[in-house]
Design a protein around this nucleic acid. Structure first.
Lengths: 332, 332
DNA sequence: TTGAAAGCGCTAACAG
DNA sequence: CTGTTAGCGCTTTCAA
């Protein structure tokens, strides 16, 4: 048994309603059409179950209702939250977004970028995997781009960031005023965002002179990254009373590792990480969090895509949000 | 300044390589073409930076490299993990997937389904928001469908599930053998998956006769759902020594609520929920988890989409995974 | 083998 | 205001 799956087209509707395809197109696009004709068209649309084929629309038009979101890790709650913010912009506009997880792998990221270009998406929101991420192909194809979470060296694109330097400073001030004196830092595999956080932290530490940075270690921004990094420090016999971690998942790893390390009680260690408020049950413990607002960042990114669609020669702008200190409720 | 963003087309390549567009098409699609012509085409492709326009391809072909994943909550780690499994199938096939979060709202789900049809996607993987979810539009459009996580009343579609009844039974056995005697259940807003888990739990409880179900309460499958549900039970003065929750995020809410409820120590309560292994730092505490394998489920769903693409009249199959008891490591 | 040309479904000139 | 028609970029018969 073979079923003919050919979908209802604008021609079917035109024939059924005894009008031209142009009229059908006008009606479905909300343009002015004589009352009775519009009625007939609408009726036929309903009867036949016509849905405009977006593929055909996209081929014809310059704008697309499909966007791309490319992030380092779409299992990270920071990015899923950001996706929510983006959705808020997309939903009422009837657009959908395909999401790619680069896993901080430039090649995988390149793949998704190529797909985005091949799909002629209407816009790309991306948290670049590295400084070397090349977005020129998008620009050449006239595709709006917004960078989120991590900036790129040349500020040629709209960028939505948190003030990461300030975030690092916030973290240092927290540890200092909470009475900690010797800290270790776990940073993400080199990327501008992690660097800035580290810089802000170090600058503040230097200024007050009360806190000592025993060591800095790098990890892969995922749970295991934090786990192995702190594990190595412990095995090296480094002594510390607090930990500063530049990302959320690595903080989990750090805490796990300390729970596993019999020689030390986690209760005596101070933790400060980023975006832990998105991690259920973690916020509200003896852990401080430097919180961004990923939902708002996603929203803004979406708005900038729209803006660029309407004004393709707009100058790139940088939007920087202020981070907040949170998650301190438990017996300090 | 206005830039001409017209992308390189197959015609540009044809002209540049002094061949016909058909030849270019054949080369880029790996068909047999005379050696020297192929060389010329490939060179031109590289020089001009030609990338086939997928929109045009899709309009012409019947198959699409864009799929849809529609889930109740794309911030839930169970579904992001499932998305990973799906990605494993899509990546090597050069296909991408747009994801929609229905938020258990039939209308929002309908919207994403309509978008999927309008986009003429190559396949839809969906965890239905309710029994009333209508997938017939997809079938009519000849779009392969795979249902995951929750089944639909009529078994007309490929379905990838965990044996939820067995999962509930596992949970009951755990609580019983851990010595608990009076439990409350927090279930998801009525859906077949939650029901089955509850049924499995109740059936086992009845069989052994050792455990008593004090009350069943329903929540919205998110953190607040669990929080308010257990909160109400506490306020009603229900007494219990353990809690069975049919979903992961609600378990978080339950634990949070108990932490907030001064009159009770969380340490004396036994918890068993689903998929808590995906929740960082939760697994390994005095909490048991009935674990599914969302990654594998996503993979299988993807494979079934491919299968249906190749064999459109294949009979629907049901795939049921066995759940596992996990997360018991901490002082029982 | 290769090329010319039709056509996927839609929108937007253009003509009436 | 409505209809006719070209054409978006691609694949695929069909002829050469």
């Amino acid at each position: 048994m073979t079923i003919d799956h050919r979908a209802v087209t604008i021609y079917d509707v035109a024939r059924h309603a005894h009008v031209s395809v142009a009229t059908v197109s006008r009606v479905t696009n909300g343009q002015k059409v004589r009352e009775d004709l519009a009625k007939r068209v609408l009726a036929s649309v309903a009867i036949l179950g016509f849905r405009p084929n977006r593929t055909a629309q996209r081929l014809r038009l310059t704008t697309s209702h499909l966007w791309a979101l490319i992030v380092p890790d779409f299992e990270n709650s920071f990015f899923t939250r950001l996706a929510r913010g983006l959705e808020q912009i997309c939903l009422p506009r009837n657009t959908c977004v395909f999401v790619g997880s680069s896993d901080d792998d430039p090649q995988k990221e390149r793949h998704y970028l190529d797909v985005a270009i091949a799909e002629r998406v209407g816009g790309v929101v991306i948290a670049p995997a590295s400084d070397a991420t090349d977005l020129s192909g998008l620009t050449e194809a006239g595709i709006p781009v917004v960078i989120v979470d991590r900036s790129l060296p040349d500020n040629r694109y709209d960028t939505v960031l948190t003030d990461n330097f300030a975030g690092g400073a916030l973290a240092a001030n927290y540890l200092t005023s909470a009475g900690y004196r010797k800290t270790v830092c776990i940073a993400g595999s080199p990327n501008p965002t992690s660097e800035k956080r580290l810089e802000g932290f170090a600058a503040t530490v230097n200024k007050t002179g009360l806190l000592d940075i025993a060591k800095v270690k790098y990890g892969n921004n995922r749970i295991e990254g934090g786990y192995t990094a702190i594990r190595q420090l412990l095995e090296e016999g480094i002594v510390f009373d607090s930990v500063f971690v530049t990302n959320n998942l690595m903080t989990i790893g750090v805490i796990k590792a300390l729970d596993d390390w019999a020689a030390l009680s986690r209760d005596n260690i101070g933790f400060v990480g980023f975006d832990l408020n998105e991690i259920p049950l973690l916020a509200g413990k003896r852990i401080a969090s430097i919180d961004q607002n990923p939902h708002e960042m996603g929203r803004l990114a979406g708005e900038r895509i729209i803006f660029q669609q309407q004004q393709s020669d707009a100058a790139a702008e940088l939007f920087e949000f202020a981070p907040k200190l949170g998650g301190l409720s438990w017996k300090l």
